[in-house]
Design a protein around this nucleic acid. Structure first.
Lengths: 200, 200
DNA sequence: CACTATACGGACTGACGGTCCGGTTGACGA
DNA sequence: TCGTCAACCGGACCGTCAGTCCGTATAGTG
């Protein structure tokens, strides 16, 4: 990979991010806008990212790194052994840590914050033509984790569907619809939902 | 309104309905396709329905009449006194009828059936650019009703949000994602969700 | 310095939603 | 039965946008 290629990739992502943040409706941002804002030809966009969805996905991946880290702290999950490197064990705090409801609420709360802070971008990805919110890598990862937690807390019966329902409660377009609710109100509702589904 | 206008309206709705039923991805159906299938000019479509969303909305309204009736049977709601005609009172079965959980489950179940039977059309409306699933008339009606029922069953605290969460659990694209689940599994999950939120 | 794979950019294409307008026809009064 | 006209019709046309193509420029290499 050539140096200018990598540099341009960053420039494009930065410009696209800025544009999406300035706007409410995701498809006010066209590929031509992004190319112009990045000072780059359109071809460069499509060579680097494949198509519009690819670009949005890349931007999303970029921004959600912090979120991923936060989520992994809350629930290291079965993916902990993925790297050949030394497995980091949470020292001092054993399996009697926070209960399922707390962990789930923490995770959904983190997603909530992320989606509020990246509203337009998130909606761009979750509604983008294609397979919609579900071919999203993060969605599948978190659906799997939530399913496991729910299953531990109340048995495998319907855990799968309930995990979907929990994630549906923080979908970005719903949050956009409730955009003038104060954060505390959303959090309270979420908390009520989680407490209802998971044994306190 | 002229006779040929009304006739064409029906023809167009029928053709569009047929087309959406033949397909999985809603935007495989273009306005030109519909016009051609109806044996009508494109101008007629836009004069009669305003724009693509208007046409889809009209088709949806057409098909959801049965659903609306079913839902109103389950919960006549505060809208019962709308007509000056005689108010129909459910005879013999007083206010100690089915509990909140039963009523909500029945309503969501009816929506589930409708959305399964009209999958592509429903997704076309719920994702169609604009204000998405929420400027839908039926959505608002049912959010209001569910909010009331939830509030009666567990107090006004968060009833609003929980009603959104319940509706989010039957969103058409989620159902599409779970398209090869048998109906019973969906129903079971829904039932578990409703029972968790509403006191049994 | 020559050479080539890589990257660049913007003109071009195809598809689609939506508009426009000259021609047609149903409704209705005489 | 006929004349009149507003409502209606259809499809050519337009603007926009994602995505492609290809001639040109340049970073990296021996």
């Amino acid at each position: 990979m050539r140096a200018d290629g990598a540099r341009n990739r960053e420039v494009v992502l930065a410009a696209a991010g800025r544009l999406f943040d300035q706007v409410t409706d995701p498809d006010q941002i066209t590929m031509d806008h992004i190319a112009a804002a990045a000072g780059v030809g359109k071809g460069t966009l499509f060579r680097g990212f494949g198509d519009r969805v690819g670009l949005i996905r890349a931007l999303y991946a970029d921004r959600s790194q912090d979120l991923q880290a936060a989520l992994s702290t809350i629930d290291p999950g079965p993916a902990a052994g993925d790297h050949p490197g030394p497995v980091k064990v949470t020292a001092g705090r054993d399996h009697t840590g926070p209960g399922p409801a707390e962990r789930v609420l923490a995770a959904l709360g983190a997603m909530l914050d992320f989606k509020l802070a990246n509203s337009t971008l998130t909606r761009a990805l979750e509604n983008a033509g294609a397979g919609s919110p579900f071919d999203n890598e993060l969605y599948n990862l978190w659906h799997a984790r939530l399913t496991r937690i729910v299953a531990e807390a109340r048995g495998p019966e319907n855990a799968d569907y309930l995990a979907h329902a929990l994630l549906a409660a923080v979908r970005s377009d719903l949050l956009h619809q409730l955009r003038d609710w104060p954060r505390a109100r959303l959090e309270a509702g979420l908390s009520a939902l989680v407490d209802a589904i998971l044994p306190s």
